[in-house]
Design a protein around this nucleic acid. Sequence first.
DNA 1: CCAAGATGCAACCCTGGGGTTGCACAGGAG
DNA 2: CTCCTGTGCAACCCCAGGGTTGCATCTTGG
Lengths: 104, 104
Amino acid sequence: MSAPPDAAFAALADGTRWKVLVRIGREPASASALARELPVSRQAIVKHLEVLAGAGLVFSQRRGREVVHVAVGERLSALGRDLDRIGQGWDDRLAALKEEAEDG
Amino acid sequence: MSAPPDAAFAALADGTRWKVLVRIGREPASASALARELPVSRQAIVKHLEVLAGAGLVFSQRRGREVVHVAVGERLSALGRDLDRIGQGWDDRLAALKEEAEDG
DNA sequence: CCAAGATGCAACCCTGGGGTTGCACAGGAG
DNA sequence: CTCCTGTGCAACCCCAGGGTTGCATCTTGG
């Protein structure tokens, strides 16, 4: 598959967003809690969580007066396997080019 | 590892860039050639190739008056395996939260 | 009921970076 | 040698989106 993982990557590309994801992967947390731990406002955190949720990387659950978020590994694992497989195929071509370069 | 793959993701996040990468993964090509195939200028292609090269995802080789670029799978595969592994770990936590939600 | 903490919206700012155009320069094809 | 083509800068445009502040709303603890 060379389908567009674009969306997922876009979600993972931002540094802050990645920190948030890893953090809630370690242990569930609310937006406010995350805002206290990271050097950004709660709203920024909220936006990141929305993006992550949109990519299916986060599961949210209302828990009393707060909303707890946790990372979903399924999608990430699937994406990871795809990348691994795609990468495998490319190495062959690379070897061919390098060889040709040395020959001629 | 929860190390920052940020850099690599940033390189993969853009749609056009991903197309370029997939394209030169299928078969080596010069920037000009790619510019003819994709709906963007050669300069845009060049910039993308620079980013990809910076992330170690592309190998370039001067071939006469043109420079041929080809995708390197190694990095991508490694990244893929990392993601898969990281994702695995998260699923446990998720299961726990869902269960707790159903109980209480 | 009342105060405190958490969330939900919305308007707004501002930089990064994807994309373009223009031009000079180099290496091949004829 | 002389065009044609592919590269290599560099200056510029423009907007998506990461980040902020302010305020209204709602739920829980007293």
